[in-house]
């Protein structure tokens, strides 16, 4: 902004005054962001380098113990030569795969849904938006527990299939990766639908006509014109589904069982109850945060490069 305004020294002075005022106006949001975001992350960052207190909490002695525990296996008594610790990396890997699939399924279902909503007559759009938000009237915990009842061996789905004679014994759904996937998909689908809806609603449908006019069929128009035009909404939806899915703990805990342990549950366990290891939980969070930031930075850099091409 300053670059645009500063064509002469007088303008420059004026610009800095304006900027000062804008800075003042932004103060409340800086305070909120500071207290709610920056400070907690800093606390976690510091905790991850402290020593574990066995009743929960920390002892203020600097150590790299938590990170060591995450990456290296030194044997049961800590006296063997260090090897790579696979337990936690596996949990990370599993979480990434689950989050990736949740994102893909949400996109596959969310895009057509959003497209349908955004192309409905304006009167019915607000109704459809309202319907999408209805699940949020009920707490996520309750919804996840309900899903558990729905898909368990003696739940209505299995009961019904048995009664119809379509199966002889209940299909095992609870405590599987499938159940976790279902839970993640169900929890975060609206986060995919809403941003895509917003960008399709802003999309100029004359562009689709222009494509059709230039010998482009429907599917080709979708992939060559519509999707590139609403890409920001799709990216936003993917980020909004992928990141919470990565750190989710309700669905993995309640639906996945011990075999489908994910990052969220790992962190949760460290802070819950007496057996928790706060520095380790903080270290896991920091590692996750670093990976996510890395992904977003790579994406952002690609974005700026592709928009600045052609200058």
């Amino acid at each position: 902004m300053a670059g645009l305004l500063s064509s002469s020294p007088a303008n420059k002075a004026e610009a800095s005054i304006v900027e000062g005022r804008v800075g003042l106006l932004l103060l409340p949001s800086w305070v909120v962001i500071g207290i709610l975001l920056v400070v907690p992350v800093l606390i976690m960052f510091v905790y991850s380098f402290l020593t574990q207190d066995f009743r929960g909490g920390v002892i203020w002695t600097f150590t790299l113990e938590a990170y060591d525990q995450f990456f290296l296996d030194r044997g049961l008594f800590g006296d063997e030569p260090p090897q790579i610790e696979w337990t936690y990396l596996l949990i990370f890997w599993r979480s990434f795969i689950q989050a990736l699939f949740a994102m893909i399924f949400c996109l596959l279902i969310g895009f057509p849904t959003a497209y349908f909503m955004a192309t409905s007559p304006p009167q019915s759009r607000s109704m459809l938006l309202f319907l999408v938000t209805i699940p949020y009237w009920v707490n996520l915990l309750i919804r996840t527990v309900s899903m558990k009842f729905l898909i368990r061996d003696t739940g209505p789905i299995n009961e019904w299939l048995l009664a119809m004679g379509m199966i002889d014994e209940p299909i095992r759904m609870i405590n599987t990766a499938f159940a976790v996937q279902l839970g993640l998909f169900y929890s975060y689908l609206p986060f995919m639908v809403l941003p895509i809806y917003a960008s399709i609603e802003r999309y100029n449908f004359v562009l689709s006509e222009a494509a059709a006019d230039l010998y482009t069929g429907r599917w080709s128009t979708l992939f060559r014109v519509v999707i590139p035009s609403v890409k920001p909404g799709i990216i936003a939806g993917c980020i909004l589904v992928f990141i919470p899915s990565l750190g989710a703990f309700l669905a993995p805990d309640l639906l996945g069982g011990a075999k489908n342990f994910m990052i969220g549950s790992l962190v949760e366990e460290q802070f819950k109850g007496q057996a928790g290891d706060w520095p380790f939980g903080a270290a896991v969070s920091m590692i996750l945060l670093t990976i996510i930031m890395g992904i977003l930075l790579v994406y952002a850099r690609n974005q700026t490069q592709s928009t600045s091409r052609g200058h």
Partner: peptide, 22 residues
């Protein structure tokens, strides 16, 4: 015939250029 099958082309009122293409 569908629009993409007709050998006619249109210049639209608001141009309708594809914003993501050069």
């Amino acid at each position: 015939l569908a629009p993409h099958q007709r050998p006619v082309n249109t210049v639209f009122q608001q141009y309708a250029l594809f914003p993501h293409l050069t």
